[in-house]
């Protein structure tokens, strides 16, 4: 079969296995880091309390302990649930998270697969999770789950559009959809008459960045947009009937996607792994750390907003998407296009 693939088959499977294992460990690791640093600790400090302190140094192993606890929980399928769909729903959500990581570059060579459709693929795959959420809500045979799932579907499709349209500005500027290409376009760019720091698109696409951040917040169902899982109204929304590991999959999906979206935001608007003046192998070594720092700053913004604002009402939520974000991003595309052609 190696002639069909046109390359050394052993090497292909070796690298692919390594990539799969790296991403497999990256998703729980990313979820635990974001969960610990922001959800547990930062929120506690903002509310003048300590947060978890017992498990591990300063409570750093709290989420690992939670994971072990989930492992020992009984696996419950509600009597009236559609068993097959009920079991498949968390897999669909987790798969959408998993596929997101394929196109995110962490260095000149540190990327699973540099697809030409890069960012388009990422946006398409991320919207798969809506399907999993609807499946979970419908199959649970529970009113809370169903209402939560319908709210989630309405919200996710409304904010899908600003998310996609905000990215178009970056694609126009870079002239490519490949995320690796977008990083290089920013690295080679010039702004204020100097190419010293390249051209991070947050400077020229600031409107796009703000729209992207707002839409990402809604896609991740973080607090101002947390109608679908509103604890005070719907218990846990579409996750109400899930126990143990199956619940954990939704949690991992949520925070793993938050990590991936922060990485995509960092790549599109903050220059990704690029460090001025560093090339070749050194960039491969430094890249993940630089990208990691940028991921944490974007995630900080997302969680800062999460802890600061009260929940939107359903009509405010739809109006915000349709009356503000979508028109703004359409104007942003036209202005970017005009400037690209004229300049």
């Amino acid at each position: 079969m190696s002639w069909m693939l046109g390359l050394d088959l052993t090497a292909y499977w070796a690298t692919t296995t390594i990539k799969v294992l790296v991403v497999l460990s990256l998703i729980p690791a990313g979820a635990i880091i974001l969960g610990y640093v922001f959800l547990l600790k930062m929120m506690s400090w903002m509310q003048s309390r300590m947060g978890p302190m017992e498990a591990g140094p300063r409570g750093s192993l709290q989420l690992v302990a939670d994971g072990v606890k989930f492992m020992q929980k009984e696996d419950i399928f509600p009597a009236r649930a559609d068993r097959f769909v009920f079991a498949a729903a968390p897999i669909v959500v987790l798969m959408s998270t998993f596929l997101l990581y394929i196109v995110i570059p962490a260095g000149p060579r540190l990327i699973v697969e540099d697809l030409d459709t890069g960012i388009f693929f990422a946006l398409a795959v991320s919207s798969l999770s809506v399907l999993g959420i609807l499946m979970a809500g419908w199959s649970s045979a529970n009113k809370y789950s169903l209402i939560g799932a319908l709210r989630a579907a309405g919200q996710l499709i409304a904010y899908e559009l600003p998310l996609v349209l905000a990215v178009v500005g970056v694609v126009v500027q870079a002239g490519t959809m490949s995320l690796q290409g977008i990083v290089h376009a920013q690295a080679d760019g010039e702004i204020f008459g100097t190419g010293l720091i390249g051209n991070p698109y947050i400077l020229t696409q600031f409107v796009g960045f703000v729209v992207f951040l707002a839409a990402a917040q809604a896609e991740l169902t973080q607090t101002p947009f947390d109608m679908p899982v509103a604890e005070s109204e719907l218990v846990a929304g579409y996750m109400t009937e899930y126990t143990g590991f199956r619940f954990l999959f939704f949690f991992m999906g949520e925070f793993g996607t938050a990590f991936a979206f922060s990485a995509i935001g960092a790549t599109l608007f903050l220059g990704g792994w690029y460090v001025p003046g560093v090339e070749g192998t050194l960039a491969d070594i430094l890249g993940p750390f630089v990208l990691g720092a940028k991921i944490m700053s974007i995630a900080f913004l997302i969680f800062w907003i999460r802890f600061s604002y009260p929940r939107f009402r359903e009509d405010q939520l739809q109006a915000f998407a349709w009356k503000y974000l979508i028109p703004i991003s359409l104007v942003n595309i036209m202005v970017t296009g005009i400037l690209k052609v004229v300049l």
């Binding site: 692919t16 799969v20 991403v23 798969m95 699973v112 693929f121």
Partner: peptide, 10 residues
């Protein structure tokens, strides 16, 4: 790779 990653998630 996309196919392999989907299978790996399952």
């Amino acid at each position: 790779s996309v196919l392999i990653f989907g299978a790996a998630a399952v």
